[in-house]
Amino acid sequence: MKFWRAIAVAALIAAAPVVLAGEIPPEMRRSGYSFMGPETRAMQDDDASNPGMLFVLDGQALWTKKSGSADKACVDCHGDARSSMKGVAVRYPAFDKTQGRPVTLDQRINLCRADHQQAKPLAYESRDLLALSAFVAHQSRGVPIAAGDDPQLRPFVELGRDLFNQREGQLNLACTNCHDDNFDRRLAGAPVTQGQPTGYPLYRLEWQTLGSLERRLRSCMTGVRAQAYDYGAPELVALELYLMSRARGLPIETPAVRP
């Protein structure tokens, strides 16, 4: 009798949707946009009401502003961002040969500032850095995410996946417990999303400002009462890289609006 019950249980588990077993299949991947209410969607859809566009405008001004002792602006090397930066953000974090590790778009901007402009790095989450990365990522709006293809990135994607599946904090939860297993359900009234990073840096109404994916990840870690990694920590970059490769195929929405 016990034997048959075990088989029945095994059959039930096998019949459950594959999403429970691991990664979300491409056709089931959904942007956080689809989990939002109609008012927040309308806010994102209209560039005249999307507060993230204010940062994109600031970024546009910074793009042509000379900075650092080399007295160069982004535009002096990269030209018109509308063509040169289209499709760039979709493959970040990308592998940097001199660093021997993946770098995020924010880190790339600061590397560019150090190497080519001889300027001081911009602080993480500072208005100027967010504005520049929002402006660059905005050029890729509508372009499908294609990060993590580089074979050199494989060990870092693996590290990110391990961190995504690793339980942590006093609540002892892993990212996967909510964002793979329980999306479309609710956590204290708020919808649990798939955690697809399609619109970063994005305007969060809760934050009242634009914020990076790292800020979002850190607040999730605080939420499960874990010690959050520092900005720019290799673990955060690896997580970011894994999330971007997990969102492959979804179009970029930068600057997105989220509740």
Partner: peptide, 8 residues
């Protein structure tokens, strides 16, 4: 400061 204005 940046402002976004929408007037027909």
């Amino acid at each position: 400061m940046a402002a976004l204005i929408n007037v027909p």
